[in-house]
Computed example of a mutant assay.
Amino acid sequence: MTAAATSKAKAEPAAAWGAVFSMALCVAMLIASEFMPVSLLTPMAQGLGASEGQTGQAISVSGLFAVAASLLVTTAAGRLNRKWVMVAMTALMLISLALVAAAPNFAMLMLGRALLGVCIGGFWALATAVIMRLVPEGDVPRALSLMYGGQAIAAAFAAPIGSYLGGLFGWREVFWALTPIVAINLAWHVMALPSLPAGRPQDFRAMLGLLKRRYFLAGLIAAMLSWGSAFTMFTYLRPFLERVTGADVTLLSVLLLVLGCAGFLGAWAAGRFLTGNVAPLLKLPALLMGGCTLGLLLLGGSAVAAGLLLALWGAMNTAMSVIWMAWMAQNADDAPEAAGSVMVAAIQASILLGAVVGGLLLDAMSIQATFIGGVALAAAAIALIGDGRRMLKPQ
């Protein structure tokens, strides 16, 4: 082995796959906690005496606090060991779930969701940078796909099981059921994550420096449009399926299960085929997911058509996260924590905007208007991305 190869081998971390799987479980719990109100929107609204549009803001408030936390965590954490920051974020998720489950009113629900937002922002801002330190460089796409496999697990089982159990036992019991799993994940983090000392402190100047890079800014805006399109539709999927498709609780659970199970295929495909140049893949999420939303507008009255479209949407949903985070890892590898903070803030802001605008359109106009808004955002993303080459850093 040459001296250069020996030096590179020493620089690369030994693969800590147990820690990667612990991160994947945390992702599953975060996604389940963040978007569980989607599958429980109607009963939660009834139980808290609020409209469906208002209750949908329970997602937007977590997004608001996630934006703030994602921008602050890398600077606020300073020299803290990143292992213990991740442990603290998971503990905060546990507290949030307990507050939501016990919420006597809408205000307490929003407080619990705000705490969850801090956890979401803090975790995601550091997650890709942590994964990059857990495995060698060549294994990063695979590790990312495994981590986002947690997203597929949550999408596959959290929404349909939440919808079904919510119908049997009540929405509060669904949130209580998540707490022991998060407690187990907290203990797994402590045991599996290696010590991750902080590197060079990141500040807002590093984040602003990234925004001055035209290719990074263009990619960031395209990612925001892609996520905004997805969650303008997804946040209000249950009302659409109930009103347009005519789904009862059983059919709703089946359709959400189809959507979620397809996410495993998306995560596997992204990890399997995402190698080298990511540019041609950047527009796929907006193209396919926006097309599925349009398809639901045209064919959503059929349960079979809705199921097929949701399967394609679900597969692309998990692939979207892997595609864009791989883009970030490849094009901001010199400042991964700062890039993670900016990226997560942008994504959460787009989710927040999608939930807010979608809720306003739903309450003021119709569920169809909400979905049309999602299609418009997808079209804007496709137009901006083009062939994707403008979003790659100069070689």
Rank of each mutant, 00 (worst) to 15 (best):
E137W: 04
G138K: 10
G138D: 11
G138Q: 13
V140W: 10
P141T: 04
A143T: 03
L144G: 07
L144A: 06
L144D: 05
L144S: 10
S145C: 02
S145W: 00
L146M: 11
L146V: 14
L146I: 15
Y148P: 08
Y148S: 04
Y148K: 04
Y148A: 07
G149C: 05
Q151W: 10
Q151C: 03
A152G: 06
A152I: 00
A152W: 05
A152R: 00
A154N: 08
A154K: 12
A154S: 11
A155R: 03
A155D: 09
A156W: 05
A156R: 03
F157L: 07
F157Y: 01
A158P: 15
A159I: 11
A159M: 14
A159Y: 04
P160R: 00
P160W: 12
P160A: 01
I161C: 09
I161G: 04
G162L: 00
S163C: 10
L165S: 13
L165C: 10
G166V: 07
G166W: 13
G167M: 03
L168S: 09
L168E: 12
L168A: 05
F169P: 04
F169H: 14
G170C: 15
G170M: 14
W171K: 01
R172P: 03
R172Y: 06
V174K: 12
V174P: 12
F175W: 11
F175D: 05
F175Q: 00
F175R: 03
F175K: 05
F175G: 01
W176C: 09
W176T: 03
W176N: 08
W176E: 10
A177Y: 08
A177E: 00
L178D: 03
L178E: 15
L178Y: 13
T179Y: 02
P180D: 08
P180R: 01
A183Y: 02
I184L: 13
N185T: 11
N185F: 02
L186P: 10
L186H: 01
